[in-house]
Design a protein around this nucleic acid. Structure first.
Lengths: 188, 188
DNA sequence: CCCAAACGAACGATCGTTCGTTTGCTCTCA
DNA sequence: TGAGAGCAAACGAACGATCGTTCGTTTGGG
């Protein structure tokens, strides 16, 4: 029997936390997923909480980088919104467990790490809000509350973690384009 | 010290399941919320699982009735979509804990009751899908995949359980109208 | 005085985690 | 080439805590 890496453990934890929830997953469950005893996981990891923190930090980091890249670009606001949507869909569809755990289990983080994650999430949402506000200012979008608009856009995107299956009828790209169309229509 | 009713227990359970999750809430937590010991809850309730089943069945029932009422109405599809949206927003904003538990914790139901709930949820989504399909057929909405469109609409609505606070800046009605506008724009 | 409600001790199961031991691969050197 | 040392990985028993739940007892309002 071959040996597992720390990365294997993190990946399996992401899978189980995403499908059964953090509190619904025991270390023995996680061990079984890897063909190990629960106690053997402590050769790779300090604690169950550390696993949650690490997974969620990775998730938050992916979205953060994406938002910063798009926000820094030199294109009109409506195009930035489309890019934000496409990138968000791409991140979720190609990192489903990480994204689902980040979006659904962050409330179970220990206090110290939760604050940092909440701040990253707020910054991410602020990027959407500001881009939408610019689009309203330059007339690309109709007059509306940018905070509420950004929440609705993110709602469409984040729900992907709940229903997307790679084996589904439409490809990730097709879904991305459908979401761009829906969101742009909702904003104009 | 006054006495608690079974209804008090169900309501408190909805509140805790919504905020801490089913597996994150112990019977002793729930007792404490009511000023009781965990064991005292069994004067009102058979099991923790029964509480989850009852809360989720109530939630599912509310959405079900709403969809059936709107679907049976004699108005054009685009108006039905607006009514579906308004009613959905109203249900969530006035039954937040019930809705959140229904939408987020249904995966932890015991197998027997989960099947029935999944079927109700599928029927509810089918109502949205069929109304949207009618709207496409009569030219109110642009050509598009009705299944994907209904998922996106419901994504906007269901995310309400995650961010709506009665003390927030906009009233439930204002949010409802903003969502009608966003969704109708996304569909046309 | 009755009876539902609440108590509080206790049950077996499972939780996250620790720790001494065993396993089996890799590297070294005769 | 092969014996053996070193070491990370995995084991498995065990820890105290907490889980959902049971049950005999106490309590207090109608």
């Amino acid at each position: 029997m071959s040996t597992r890496s720390r990365e294997d453990v993190v990946e399996a934890a992401g899978r189980l936390f995403a499908s059964r929830g953090f509190h619904g997953t025991s270390m023995r469950d996680l061990g079984e997923e890897l063909g190990l005893l629960g106690s053997s996981l402590y050769s790779h990891v300090d604690s169950k909480e550390q696993l949650l923190v690490e997974i969620i930090q990775r998730g938050a980091g992916m979205f953060q980088e994406h938002a910063d890249r798009v926000a820094g670009g030199d294109v009109p606001p409506s195009e930035k919104v489309a890019d934000l949507v496409r990138g968000h869909v791409s991140i979720i569809t190609s990192n489903q467990d990480l994204s689902a755990t980040f979006l659904n289990e962050a409330r179970f983080l220990p206090d110290e790490s939760r604050a940092a994650i909440v701040e990253m999430r707020d910054r991410y949402e602020a990027t959407f809000r500001e881009v939408i506000a610019s689009g309203i200012a330059d007339g690309s979008f109709r007059e509306q509350n940018p905070a509420l608009a950004s929440i609705m856009v993110l709602s469409v995107l984040n729900a992907l973690t709940r229903w997307y299956r790679p084996s589904g009828r439409q490809s990730a790209d097709e879904i991305g384009e459908a979401m761009v169309a829906f969101v742009m229509g909702g904003l104009v």
